[in-house]
Structure formats: C-alpha cells, structure tokens
Amino acid sequence: MRLLDAGINKQHIRAVIRRHYYVQKRGWHRWFDVLVWPTVDTVIWGSIGQFVTQQGGPVRSGLPYMLTGILMMHVLYQANISVSTGFMEETWSRNLLNVMVSPVTELDYMIGIVIFGLGKLALGLSTVAIAAAALYSFNILSVGWAIVPIIGILMLVGWCIALFVMGFVLRFGNGAEILAWGVLFVVVALSGVFYPVTALPAAMQPVSQLLPSTHALIAARTVLDGDPLPWSELAKAGVALAALIPLSLAYLNRTLRTFRHRGYVTRYS
C-alpha cells in the first residue's frame, strides 16, 4: 500500500493523538524530552556562552548565539524525536499489528503523530525560552519574527529525519532506534548549530552545504548580527528541502513495502 494513496480520516487522526496523549500523560520519562533535556541543554550551552563573554571572547561565541543555537537544535530534536518515538511506541508495546490491521491508513497515523509532536515541540521550545529568560535574562523573542521561517525549515528537517528513522526501524528492527538520536546529532554537527560551517573540517563542509538546516542556521546567525533576513539562504534551504522531503517519503514508502513483503510485522507479534 502506498503511503499517500488514501484520504484523510479525522476520527482516526484524533484517535492517534489521544493514544499518544495518554502515553505522554502517564510516561514520566516522556517529560524528560520536553522539560528536562531542554533545561539541561540551556544551562550547559548558556553557561559556555556566558563564560566566553566573561573572558572577552568573540561575540559570535557569546551568550545570545549559544542560546539561540540551543533553541534551533531543539527544533530539530523535538520535531524528530516526537514523531519517531511516537511511531516506536507501537513497536515497543507490540501494538503495531493491531494498528496495521485496523482501517487506519499510514497517512492518518503520520498526521496524528505529527500534530501531537507539534504540541511537544511547542512545550520543548517554551522550556528553552523560559530557561533562557529565567537563568540568563535572554529574551529569545528579541530575535524577532524572522526566526519563524527558520524554525519552520528546521522543523521540516526534523520530520524528514524522523521518516528515515521510522524506515530504518521498519527495515532493521528495534535495534535501529539508536539512529533516532544518532542521525540527529550528525545533522546537528554538520549544520553548524553553534558555529559557522567554515569551522568544520574541510572535507565535511561540502556535505554540510547540502543540508537545509545549514542554510537555516546561517540565516539565524545573520539575523542575530542585526542584519536583515537573508532570503537567499532560505531559498537554498528550500531547494534542499524540495529534494529531502520526497526522498524521505520515498524511503519510508519503500521500507513499508519491504516490511509487508518480508512479513517483518511478526517481529512485533
């Protein structure tokens, strides 16, 4: 069955959201993703930025850059983790077969976990913003509305990573779930969340230029410098996304076919 061959059913989508809301409500470990890790990251990177500022280091290593960087990283992180762990919840609780033989389509399910993930994304970003304001007196909103399209691009990149991770898990089993975090941190490193990509080893720089997140983060740093939003960087990110989105969807679609063809559902039953 192709991923996008059926219509959208709101009742299915609401049920998927409710199902994950129940898990979130009762799974205390799930709150680490939206409350604890964002706070810990803000303290670590905020303190590094504070220290650099106190030492009179380069402005671009200072507090606003680090805190904005951690906010951007959490857009990628939350977008990816909320969707990929939403799917993995079905494999962890061996509920995948029950879902697969129900009328819920892959598209309904995806939309449900993406909408639920948006709520978690908003919570995670709010945690970073509140921690930055409370601990370092830094108002992330001072960056301005230019940050909205940048966040939008990073969110899409996070979802694309989640699609690849889901494909890996379908293809290789639960052992591949480590990639939910692994792939994310590779992308974070290559995209230059806390540094310009010119600081990367020369061999890695061409690869980083292919990532939409790299251009979104260049745009974020430019705005932080007080310059206008560089639309050319956003356009480059848009072009890269135009390739990444169909690629990730095609990969997931292919692994779903393989999953059904090879009977991998029996791994979870």
Binding site: N9, Q11, H12, R14, A15, R18, R19, Y22, V23, K25, R26, G27, E89, E90, W92, S93, R94, N95, L97, N98, V99, V101, S102, P103, V104, S269
Partner: peptide
C-alpha cells in the same frame, strides 16, 4: 481482529484502549 498472544498498549487504561480502537474503526 483479535489475537490471544498480542499485548495491549502500555500506559493506557482498558477503557482508553477501547475508545482509541473504537475511533480507529469509525
């Protein structure tokens, strides 16, 4: 569909599981 060997989803009460699946089945 029902299989005796399949568990029910974690962290949901019985009525919540059934409400979710009732919505799945329209």
């Amino acid at each position: 569909f029902s299989a005796g060997y399949l568990p029910l989803p974690d962290r949901l009460r019985v009525i919540e599981v059934l409400r979710v699946f009732a919505d799945f089945y329209g």
